[in-house]
Computed example of a mutant assay.
Amino acid sequence: MKIVQAIKRHNNPFEFNNKKYLTRPLVLVFGNRFILENGTIYEEIRDLFPDGHLVFGSTSGEIMDDTVMEESVVLTAIEFEKSSFLVKSKNLKTYQNDEIALGNSLIKEFPKEGLKHVFIISDGSSVNGSALITGLENGKEIGVSLSGGLCGDDDRFERTLASYNEPPKEGEIVGIGFYGETLEVTSANYGGWTPFGPQRIITRSQGNLLFELDGKPALDLYVKYLGKKAKDLPKSALLYPLSVKTSENAEPIVRTILNIDEKENTMTLAGDVPQGSKVQLMMSSVDDIANGANEAGRLAMKDRLKSPELALLVSCIGRKLVMDQRTEEEIEEVKSVIGGDAYIGGFYSYGELAPFSQNNSCKLHNQTMTLTLFSE
């Protein structure tokens, strides 16, 4: 596996850390939405990699090695020596905003023979991540693993962008399938958030739209708990996500609020919040988040046969807001576990896609650190 990384800050050209020639590489481009909207960015990267497979995603922060950046673009170009990959993309508008149908159709684009893993980079502001995963899981083989993330837009929640071999655009979902007998891919996630306050029941919801808790408007209750911070919604909600437990035996899933509708008194979350689920507010600290990143690294490394050569990290914008000036500590925790030889790239997201520990089935998570580790 040959890997090249580079960073672009503002209007400056890309700065390479180890420039070398790659043949038909997979080029992962994660960056600030405003820079990706610039009409010249696609052609600039195409000139750098004329035969590359270019995959774009907007972010809430960019990760390269053990550094977290803002208002930049980072790229990781990979030439596989023993493995292969296939990239497919679809747009939500084509499927009349039916994420399940899109996910099912997308996963069927990948030939089954030899497929080991599919990494998803999806629009994060208009896509219901839970429904997307349902479609993907329904169409894939049992032995194929999934991971990835929902694109971000800093803490603005205006629009997010993704694309494959074209300028980034809204509503796009990109899947990257990885093939190879010697290819080893492992993924894991962990949070570090703690529930607090009373447990409530979701008495009215539809998909990822939350109407009522305990028979009362959900937004009213949320605003009450936030107090003065309510004026900064939905940004302030990132500091207090919801723990959602769909049944007594189910693992709790963390859900971030993406948007609010004051007129309808509703909240739009990054994934489904089924009626009857039990929910609690959650909070965290810098140390808890750093420790959670360490645990995510430990879980991803568990039972690996080979040391990772590439680590793709997807962490949540809410974690970044809590960490503030200490954000890089969670990346450093990951690096301390996976070792210093792996190239690290990634982004801060509006949602993370990964299985629970010891479970091959992918789920949508919020407020977690998710790792996907590759070696040939």
Rank of each mutant, 00 (worst) to 15 (best):
Y348V: 05
T59M: 10
G271A: 15
L364F: 09
L321P: 07
N17F: 13
E70P: 02
N11R: 14
A101P: 03
S60D: 07
K302P: 00
V4E: 03
L209K: 15
I201T: 15
I100G: 04
S205Y: 06
T186Y: 00
K335W: 01
V185S: 04
P167V: 15
E264T: 10
P111F: 14
N360F: 05
E170N: 13
P274Y: 09
E184L: 09
T194A: 13
V334Y: 00
L221S: 14
A342D: 03
E43G: 02
Q96D: 14
S84A: 13
E295L: 15
L371T: 02
M282K: 04
E70N: 10
K320D: 12
V29A: 13
T368I: 12
F16G: 01
N360D: 07
F34N: 11
G197K: 14
Y95E: 05
P274L: 11
L92Y: 03
N91V: 11
I331M: 06
E113I: 11
T134Y: 10
G227L: 05
T67F: 09
V223Q: 10
S247Y: 11
M369V: 09
G175A: 07
S315G: 04
S284Y: 07
S307W: 03
D272F: 01
V4S: 07
K224C: 13
Q275N: 10
I176A: 13
T76R: 03
A230Q: 09
K116M: 06
A342W: 01
L371Y: 01
L26T: 08
P111Q: 15
F85S: 00
D154V: 04
T134Q: 12
I120T: 03
G152F: 10
G171W: 00
S89C: 11
L281G: 06
G139L: 04
E70M: 12
V223H: 04
Y164K: 09
A237V: 07
L106H: 07
D47S: 10
C151V: 04
F110E: 14
D154M: 04
K302T: 04
F14T: 05
L305C: 02
I63T: 01
H53K: 14
F14K: 02
T268N: 11
R24G: 05
D261C: 11
S285G: 13
K228A: 10
P25N: 12
G177W: 03
R33M: 04
P167Y: 13
I142A: 08
K320L: 14
S285H: 07
V29F: 08
G192D: 05
G52L: 08
K140W: 02
V279D: 04
K306D: 00
E329P: 02
L92G: 07
C151Q: 00
G149C: 01
E99R: 02
L132F: 08
D220P: 00
P167A: 15
D288G: 13
K20Q: 12
K278V: 11
K88H: 14
P217Q: 06
T368E: 02
D288K: 14
T368M: 11
V27C: 06
L213D: 06
N11G: 13
T370V: 01
A250P: 12
E172R: 12
E109H: 12
F178L: 14
Q5L: 09
M369I: 08
V174L: 10
G31T: 05
S361I: 14
T59G: 03
L373F: 01
D98K: 11
T134D: 10
R200M: 15
I107Q: 11
K224F: 14
I331R: 02
L102S: 07
Y225E: 07
L305M: 05
R204D: 15
